[in-house]
């Protein structure tokens, strides 16, 4: 049986990238979290037929990629895993929305196709930004940043442990399901009742494991605060990064730069 965690849940390899060194990696996690959040909010805030105005936003993930020297292939693979979901969210738009929007000679493009393309473009932008965030900050860094930004500590810790034990939980569930599959014949053993007790088992096992983990943490002096050896601190570069990029987002949100450029060219050469 293929290990589920080796495909979809394999965020671990992204995390590994977060221990490289670069100008982007050196930024405070908070700076990156806030900037990425601003980026996502701005991209999502556009009208559903927007296409060209979104293009300048590519600059943000692209710049991070280059500055942080991330392996493009690896991130693209993760991106491809997310795309099918997006594809199915948007694929019905062309059927529902038949209003003609653009005409290129004989070719008529309906609003549905434009909004579909817009959804795809937006998803690519936001997912890439999120992946880049993890790859330059690490999931833990993000959790710590969230806590420092005022999100309740319990929540940040939860998130961190969820991330760590997701793999263990998935494996445990796979084992249970496999055990059932091996001993149920002709569809017997697939009843709701069996499924219920399977879920119960999973819950009990997780509870017991949680207890053991808590013990392990107590044995090493845990008192409710996770301490990690990460230099945190806002420097000038953080301020420049945050202000620079949010300025760029504001400009791109206000003016449709590609259109402006196009008009400018037409005026110059016409």
């Amino acid at each position: 049986m293929a290990r589920i965690d080796s495909t979809i849940f394999d965020l671990g390899s992204l995390d590994a990238l977060a221990y490289r060194r670069s100008g982007i990696h050196a930024l405070d996690p908070r700076t990156k979290v806030v900037t990425t959040a601003l980026f996502v909010l701005t991209v999502v805030s556009f009208d559903k037929y927007t296409l060209s105005a979104l293009l300048p936003f590519v600059l943000f993930p692209l710049a991070l990629f280059v500055r942080a020297e991330l392996p493009v292939g690896q991130i693209l693979k993760k991106l491809l895993l997310a795309l099918p979901f997006v594809f199915f969210i948007g694929i019905f738009n062309p059927w529902f929305d038949q209003r003609p929007l653009l005409e290129f000679g004989p070719l008529t493009i309906t609003g549905g196709w434009v909004s579909f393309a817009s959804i795809l473009l937006r998803s690519v932008l936001t997912v890439t930004a999120a992946l880049t965030l993890i790859a330059t900050t690490s999931f833990t860094g993000i959790c710590m940043a969230l806590e420092k930004l005022g999100c309740p500590r319990v929540f940040a810790l939860q998130l961190m442990f969820l991330y760590r034990y997701l793999f263990v939980l998935v494996e445990e569930a796979t084992r249970l399901i496999r055990a059932r599959a091996l001993r149920s014949f002709h569809g017997r053993g697939h009843s709701l009742r069996v499924f219920g007790s399977l879920l119960g088992q999973l819950l009990l096992r997780s509870l017991e494991r949680a207890q053991r983990i808590h013990l392990a943490m107590q044995c090493r002096g845990f008192d409710g605060e996770i301490r990690m050896r990460r230099p945190l601190g806002i420097h000038l570069r953080d301020v420049v990064f945050l202000l620079g990029w949010s300025g760029w987002f504001a400009v791109c949100r206000t003016w449709n730069l590609p259109q402006l450029l196009g008009t400018l060219f037409l005026e110059l050469f016409a």
Binding site: D15, T140, M160, Y163, R164, R209, I213, M217, M228, R229
Partner: peptide, 10 residues
């Protein structure tokens, strides 16, 4: 049960 942090170092 014992390794709960995100990296070996941590």
């Amino acid at each position: 049960d014992q390794l709960f942090m995100p990296t070996v170092y941590d």
